[in-house]
Amino acid sequence: MSGGGPSLKKHDPHAHAIRVAKPRLMRSVPLRFVYNRVAGHGGRDPNASLNLTAFIDFLLVTVIFLLMSFSSSGEIGVDKHIKLPKAQNVEDVIEAPMVAVNGNQVLVDGNPAGSTRDIEEVGRMQKVDKLFEMLKRKRETWRSFHPNKNFPGVCILQVDRDVPALVVKSVFQTAAFAGYPNVSFMVQKRAKVSAK
């Protein structure tokens, strides 16, 4: 309530300094293009927002593809001295004893089982005794672990492409005599080329 006397306005000593908040910067420059730029009219916003949705979708597809093709069993152990031949009409590798044959020796799962040079020196097909014993032992071990199953008789030969046929045939027949008649040769898969 005010009295009958003259109203007394409260004097604010900072009234010249404190003003309502609003854009003021460079407003005093009396040029239109400066005003437009300051007020945000007429020019493009320099901050561009990047749409990440497509990028995330791509990453998700890549992750799913790689997870589907991921194998926890790791790479199949191939002797580093062996250069495998290439072939097109092939099948997938299965779990079986690996017999590696390089220019010097025969190995069963990495353990020496005979000499390639000895077979070459004899000059005729022969049974590789140590290989025979090792494969036979492996077969008996398998049978003791799986008494009610039929033995598949599969073994895989990793043979260097420069090894002569005599050695291949000798190892092949030795494996067959040891109870592994279904012998497979490991190869590198070659991409199919279209017929001429």
């Binding site: 990453l59 890549t62 992750v63 790689l66 997870l67 093709s69 991921f70 194998s71 790791g74 790479e75 199949i76 191939v78 495998l84 072939a87 009409n89 092939v90 099948e91 997938d92 590798v93 299965i94 895989i156 092949f172 027949q173 494996a175 067959a176 005599f177 592994y180 008649p181 279904n182 012998v183 497979s184 040769f185 490991m186 190869v187 590198q188 898969k189």
Partner: peptide
């Protein structure tokens, strides 16, 4: 995850060709 899977991926594919000793 992409980096890990790419590093651990096995790119060389081995296959086999069948034979039978006819024993």
């Amino acid at each position: 995850i992409v980096a890990f899977l790419l590093i651990t991926a096995v790119w060389v594919s081995f296959s086999r060709i069948n034979a039978n000793a006819q024993v």
